[in-house]
Design a protein around this nucleic acid. Structure first.
Length: 285
DNA sequence: TAGGCGTGGCT
DNA sequence: TAGCCAAGCCT
């Protein structure tokens, strides 16, 4: 796998089950095998190829990252954590994962699975929450091998352990290779309360409306009148709010007052490079 | 820093 | 059935 392929996989796998990622990932890399290839496409192309993976802003940010890689790094995914971290949509975890799995560097790859494993084994707690703490980094740094190649293996192994064995709801302790040293298991699986985060209501949420609107725009080849979107949701205020949010987030383009909406990159009109017809958001960036 | 951000399978 | 859950990032 190329560093670009690894970067794409990490972005897609964030918050999305691997089984759903695989087909999109394969067709995506088949179409855009390098960052410059994606950068040459439109955001609309990226959003349609993203399909129903969810969190479509990831597709927009991946497109932005591809552009930055093309213009600022000669088309090559950067190696340094700082440069990776500076790319749109690349946070601490993804930068560490790309540095590790693409370039063989030693990093603390603290995704939700690794953090849960460490919380249970080291602290005897059912899980972790919030942002990564200094003590979590100390524990991870103490446990990870010093040698970079071994540290990469350790990172991959600890992620797998959390994803397949030390799972959130039904941990398979009988099959766990480190159960004998797991403080949480030895303590009898205490449930120290601390609910991670209350699940947000889905039905009737702005997220649901955004999903409906974007799905409709993905299906259309070009600009769509706002009135064509009204039938998708019966509360006009919420529909307008959701649409405005999509524009703000760079997922939808429009011209203020025009009542036309489209996926960024497929501007209506003359067909010439339409400077003034980018999204409202882009005009201020 | 808590909350917003999609989607669909699983229990 | 209605939550719960899945390799985060950003503001």
């Amino acid at each position: 796998m190329s560093p670009w392929a690894i970067l794409v996989s990490e972005v897609m796998l964030a918050q999305t089950p691997v089984a759903r990622v695989v087909p999109v990932y394969e067709s995506w890399l088949d179409r855009w095998p390098t960052a410059p290839a994606l950068a040459a496409a439109t955001v609309a192309d990226a959003l349609r190829a993203w399909g129903r993976l969810g969190y479509p802003r990831r597709a927009v940010r991946l497109h932005q990252a591809a552009a930055a890689i093309t213009t600022q790094h000669a088309g090559q995914v950067p190696r340094s954590p700082a440069a990776l971290r500076a790319l749109p949509g690349i946070g601490e975890y993804t930068a560490a994962a790309v540095g590790s799995f693409a370039y063989g560097q030693r990093h603390l790859v603290l995704d939700t699975n690794v953090r849960r494993v460490l919380a249970r084994v080291v602290l005897g707690q059912p899980g972790s929450s919030g942002s990564v703490s200094a003590s979590e980094r100390r524990d991870a740094d103490r446990l990870a091998p010093t040698d970079p190649a071994q540290a990469v293996r350790w990172a991959a192994a600890s992620m797998e352990l959390g994803a397949l064995v030390c799972t959130q709801r039904s941990p398979r302790c009988a099959h766990c290779p480190v159960v004998s040293g797991c403080r949480w298991h030895l303590d009898g699986h205490p449930d120290l309360g601390a609910r991670p985060r209350l699940a947000q209501r889905w039905a009737g949420s702005d997220r649901q409306v955004r999903g409906l609107l974007l799905e409709a725009l993905r299906r259309e080849p070009g600009p769509v009148p706002g009135r064509a979107l009204t039938g998708l949701w019966d509360e006009p205020d919420q529909r307008d709010r959701a649409l405005a949010g999509l524009v703000t987030d760079g997922l939808v383009a429009t011209v203020p007052g025009s009542d036309l909406f489209w996926l960024p990159g497929e501007e209506p009109g003359t067909g010439r490079s339409p400077r003034g017809q980018r999204s409202v958001h882009a005009d201020h960036s």
